[in-house]
Computed example of a mutant assay.
Amino acid sequence: MVTIASLVTGGSTEQLVGHLRLARENGLSESELVEAIVHLAFYAGWPKAMSAIAVAQRVFGEDHDD
């Protein structure tokens, strides 16, 4: 979660894909991850958070396509 928070606040969305997948594999739910990203919006700014949400939607959508 700390790595994801760091990537969101730093605007490093290209690295977020792999870390969101790892977070899910290690027991975090989609809703927990989305809640964390939304919470970070107040500190990192809404543009960074919304970019991260778009990445999360893509990653979670890929997981459900299987």
Rank of each mutant, 00 (worst) to 15 (best):
V2T: 15
T3R: 14
T3S: 12
I4L: 07
A5E: 12
A5Y: 02
S6Q: 06
S6T: 06
L7A: 01
V8I: 11
V8D: 02
T9H: 11
G10C: 03
G10S: 14
G11D: 05
G11W: 12
S12T: 05
S12R: 11
S12I: 07
S12F: 09
T13W: 09
E14D: 14
E14M: 09
Q15P: 00
Q15S: 13
Q15C: 01
Q15I: 03
L16D: 06
V17D: 10
V17M: 10
G18E: 13
G18T: 13
G18W: 13
H19Y: 06
H19F: 05
L20K: 07
L20E: 02
L20P: 01
R21K: 15
L22I: 13
L22T: 10
A23N: 07
A23K: 04
A23H: 08
N26D: 09
N26T: 13
G27L: 01
G27H: 10
G27D: 07
G27F: 10
G27A: 03
L28A: 04
L28C: 06
L28D: 01
S29Q: 11
E30M: 02
S31A: 09
E32F: 09
E32C: 02
L33W: 02
V34L: 08
A36S: 09
A36I: 13
A36R: 10
A36P: 01
A36M: 15
I37G: 09
I37C: 04
I37M: 05
V38T: 04
V38W: 04
H39M: 07
L40E: 11
L40Y: 12
A41V: 11
F42S: 06
Y43M: 01
Y43Q: 07
Y43T: 00
G45R: 13
G45D: 15
W46V: 09
W46K: 04
W46R: 05
P47A: 15
K48M: 03
A49P: 08
A49H: 11
A49I: 07
A49Q: 09
M50F: 15
S51A: 12
S51N: 12
S51P: 04
A52R: 01
A52D: 06
I53V: 14
I53C: 08
I53Q: 06
A54Y: 12
V55Q: 06
V55D: 00
A56C: 08
A56L: 08
Q57A: 07
Q57L: 04
Q57C: 09
V59D: 03
F60H: 13
G61N: 08
D63F: 11
H64L: 12
H64D: 11
H64V: 07
D65S: 08
D65A: 15
D66C: 08
